[in-house]
Design a protein around this nucleic acid. Sequence first.
RNA 1: GGGGCCGUAGUUAAGCUGGUUAUAACGCCGGCCUGUCACGUCGGAGGGCGCGGGUUCGAAUCCCGUCGGCCCCGCCA
Length: 593
Amino acid sequence: MKRTHTCGALRQSDAGKEAVLFGWVASRRNLGGCVFLDLRDRSGITQIIVDPQESAGCMAAASELRPEWVIGVAGTVRSRGANANPRLPTGAVELLARDIQVFSRSEVPPFLIEDGVDAREELRLTHRFLDLRRPEQNARLQLRHRLVQRVRRLLDREGFLEIETPVLIKSTPGGARNFLVPSRLQAGSFYALAESPQIFKQLLMIAGFDRYAQIVRCFRDEDLRGDRQPEFTQVDLEMSFVAPADVFAVVEQILQEMFEEALGVRPERPFRIMPYAEAMERYGSDKPDTRFGLELRDVTETVRAHGGGGVEMLQKALADGGRVKALAVPPELPLSRAELDGLEEKVKEMGGRGLTRAKVAADGSWTQTPLAKRISPELRLALNGALEAKADTALLFQFGPARQVNTILGGLRLLLGQKFSLVKPGTHHLLWVVDFPLFERSEETGAIVASHHPFTAPHPDDLDHLESDPLSVRARAYDLVLDGVEVGGGSIRIHDSETQARIFKVLGISDEEAREKFSFLLQALRLGAPPHGGLALGLDRLVMLLAGASSIREVIAFPKTQKGQDLMSGAPAPVSPAQLEELHIAPVGQKNQ
RNA sequence: GGGGCCGUAGUUAAGCUGGUUAUAACGCCGGCCUGUCACGUCGGAGGGCGCGGGUUCGAAUCCCGUCGGCCCCGCCA
């Protein structure tokens, strides 16, 4: 028996042909006199009919069949006429069985292999090969394949060379925690699994490859989330002799290709560009979801003009150089007192002190607020005006340091957007966020650290105050944001050793330390480095968004759980003392309580 | 490191203010049925409630601990 068609192939025009289909029994409907089977493979489902008049030889075999048995069926394609099933692409025809061959029987599977089942994820992950057999799961990986092919073809057309970079590399400071791999040949030394090919792709530019791209696995030993796995895939690229606009042009075309393949629409180029400062001011996020409004409103000057309106906490916030901002939640989005209390809890979770709020009454007075009796009527009315408050508008205030105010209100904005379903289903917004700060102050240590990575080029206009006011220096860095999710990021890199040395100095990295950690890169920068820059796209996140999947795990064939385990294979797992010995590793033993 | 939700037949869930034989649907097994496609129909089997302690005359139900899954904060240059 040899397969002639796949289970998604047959159409009305094939009626009358002989055909042989191989696949899995998706369902069996035994009507006593005849048996209907749904035969499934990755391409679709075809109905098989076993009719004793025509299929005498295989009637007995057909009634033995059970779901997930793997069989081959030979027979004649026949039109279903009035019995056609419009919900199946193959629904106009059926295969009239003449011969059935059983290749493999199946035990009763632990969950039903069909779309829409909600077996708990834990179970699906332990039997991932069955979960992937479900058409919708299978289709997601097929989509991922097609997206990757489109990207590869485009990159090839645009002159990018696909060059592989090492996975086993030297551990570098800063950034994500590395997975370590002990060296057998060098006792006591370790490789790190690459968290990205960053330095290598820069070296490829210095080597003169001009345009490099790679679809590459990256590893980060950090805590997991719905959109974060310990190993994940980037579309990584780097270009020589470019400005950000050149990188944008390529990446925007990649996104156009992906959108076209997944959704059948090409987003318009060029994409919107938003400075980091604007994103933070208006949306309270460096990855704003611009699919809905409810923007943050700055009322600092209004409050200042009224001297704080007699409210001590506002006066103090202003005196400390803080800001006053608000969300004005219109009456169409009604918030009960209990819901407002719930939001206040969220504010505290986000590190805020509390949520000062007010409900605006028809006459402009405020209720449900601790401010009611303290705030001057003049300031209250001015705020009503500035915030365009109508009757029953809820005002949610934050005041204090700009960063905290923005972040908290941005968090509330997202919560409200979700709560009130403010995003119209099916809408997608792509934008570039640019002009990130080059440095930020570490909250843990108070030290100045690189926001992106230490090879990011400073904005040329800010070079004169690199040392005197480093925190105000902008980076030539950019993120690509899709629907409020960071799906890519990159920068123009430093290509001269003088600037690189200045950056290391600001970061407090000594010459000695820099030489030790990055000597090869520093040397390369002194031996003819072209101006260059690039970006990496998070392939898993992009596929997730384009597939409408709820987590990154749905678009990865064999993902890990939040604790980094592969429930199917059981990784990670202990190894034998002999293996450790060979690697010169000695367990430190369990910590005693 | 922290906060939240969850764990009951093969599966998904109900039961959880403690009290006879733990309930339903789907699946599974068997009978009947020639146009089903969530086939129908009749009948049947199947769990002691993640695990370990405790309280109680009595624990899916209350308490403590623990394991696992998910969401979130921190973390992720």
